[in-house]
Amino acid sequence: MTHILEVDRVGKRFGGLQALTNITFNLEEGEILGLIGPNGAGKTTLFNTINGVYSPEEGTILFRGKNVVGHKPYEMAKMGMSRTHQIVRPLKDLTVRENIMAGACFGHENHNLLAAGRIADEMMGFAGIKAKPDQLAGSLNVAQKKRLEMARALAAHPKLLLLDEVLAGLTPSEIDGMIKTILDIRKQGVTIIMIEHVMKAIMNVSDHLLVLDYGQKIAEGQPEEVVHNERVVEAYLGDPNMARRLMEEA
């Protein structure tokens, strides 16, 4: 197995605040890594550091075998990394179709408009967007915006997809639909890291879990192992009964 992403002793500071400390993990091609931890643990910061929004002060990040520390987000996108945002960022005054086309045009496959249009039509179905292609993205509801955000990221045909809380705010039936879509994406050979608070979903979907707390990695491994890990129970779940409940749910 080859590693698509190798994060080695990465540290990120904001002024006096140490947001990430000594984060190390590897990601194998084709797997789904679940990233969990309490609010403020540094999960989104880790995403921002991986995809070049922030540059880490310490450590190295290898993406597809290349050190990418100091790369800009657009360079990461061109290398095959896509992401969604915790708070969706639709291009409001553009149509749904144009939103997805933009993902295809400027991602690492650099499609022209014609090809991007075809990909957009395909992605609308794949991501389950039930809106007219020429509807303005700003007029969609939250669930549809989340799907649009995902479709836009997928339209780039990424090698690695970073999903930041795509399930948050969805109804249970919407969550089931979204999980199916995520598993479909993985079937296409896309590697995924997902930040998620919906435990049932992440336990089912992830091959591995990585737990952050106060910017540090406190556990990593199979989902069942991780939720029984004492530090995780203590730091993240706070309450041992919670862990048992989670396992039952899963």
């Binding site: 995809n51 929004v53 800009k72 987000p73 657009y74 996108a77 061109k78 896509s82 992401r83 945002h85 960022r89 291009l91 409001k92 005054d93 553009l94 144009e98 086309m101 933009a102 993902g103 045009c105 400027f106 991602g107 690492h108 022209n112 408009l113 991007a116 836009r152 780039a156």
Partner: peptide
Amino acid sequence: KFGLGLMTIREDEDAAEVMGI
């Protein structure tokens, strides 16, 4: 395609960078 890139920047410049523009 250039124009689509410009309008993406207009709508959300940070998202545009993440999308590869």
